[in-house]
């Protein structure tokens, strides 16, 4: 000890860009968008992207208990799903019950046709979906994101949330395949054919009834 005052400053040169990004992702519970990463690390974008690629390869699901996800408009460090059983045992908590078929249908409606009102969801599914919607709002997968000013009573418009993107492992809404690409065109043709046949049957029945009356 010579009495000289030592200035303690973080040695920026010692922390690599990947290390800095890794540290920020470690403490963040939500995905961190790239601009926020750039701002916190003071890194230029190309260097940050390079560091993220380095982290991605370091945290590959085959080799690590931690994975780097690009979800919900940002980057997130999360545990590897292969280790989920051990994590759940350690945290003494069960994984939330999986969603029902009805809940997936409501989410599909809102994702592809939304934002939608509750009435529009009911109309699209042909059944009352209010309870399912309530459950999805409780689970923070749907949110009232505005109001339909063109309808009487300005009903709430429902949209999917960031938690929905996280649960689906999607970067954003465009990360889902287009609705037309999911359905086999042959399947659609079969539906059209059946409706056509039903229509023909109805016509035939009506003409038979008319003939009977005459």
């Amino acid at each position: 000890m010579n009495g000289e005052r030592q200035e303690i400053t973080p040695d920026r040169a010692a922390a690599s860009p990947a290390a800095r990004i890794e540290a920020i992702l470690l403490v963040s519970p939500q995905p961190v968008p790239l601009p926020a990463l750039l701002s916190a690390t003071a890194l230029p974008e190309p260097e940050a992207r390079e560091a993220i690629e380095e982290l991605k390869s370091r945290y590959s699901p085959a080799a690590s208990g931690i994975v780097l996800r690009e979800v919900a408009g940002g980057f997130q460090l999360a545990t590897n799903p292969l280790c989920s059983a051990a994590v759940e045992r350690f945290r003494e908590e069960a994984r939330p019950a999986p969603l029902s078929g009805a809940a997936h249908e409501v989410l599909s409606c809102v994702l592809y046709l939304g934002p939608l009102t509750r009435a529009a969801i009911n109309a699209a599914r042909g059944v009352n979906s209010d309870a399912v919607v309530r459950n999805l709002i409780d689970r923070n997968l749907l949110i009232e994101a505005g109001h339909d000013q063109n309808r009487p009573g300005t009903p709430a418009l429902l949209d999917v949330t960031e938690d929905f993107l996280l649960a689906a492992g999607a970067r954003n809404r465009d990360d889902f395949p287009a609705l037309d690409d999911i359905v086999d065109p042959e399947e659609i043709s079969r539906v059209r054919e059946r409706v056509g046949r039903l229509d023909g049957e109805t016509d035939r029945l009506e003409s038979t009834q008319k003939g009977g009356k005459e």
Partner: peptide, 28 residues
């Protein structure tokens, strides 16, 4: 019916994605 069929298939695809992404716990 066609719209519902699309929604139904979309729901199945979503269910698959949800299952694949279950069990991921955020670090922070």
């Amino acid at each position: 019916l066609v719209t519902y069929l699309k929604i139904r298939r979309g729901a199945e695809a979503l269910a698959e994605r949800f299952a694949q992404n279950a069990g991921l716990y955020a670090s922070g």
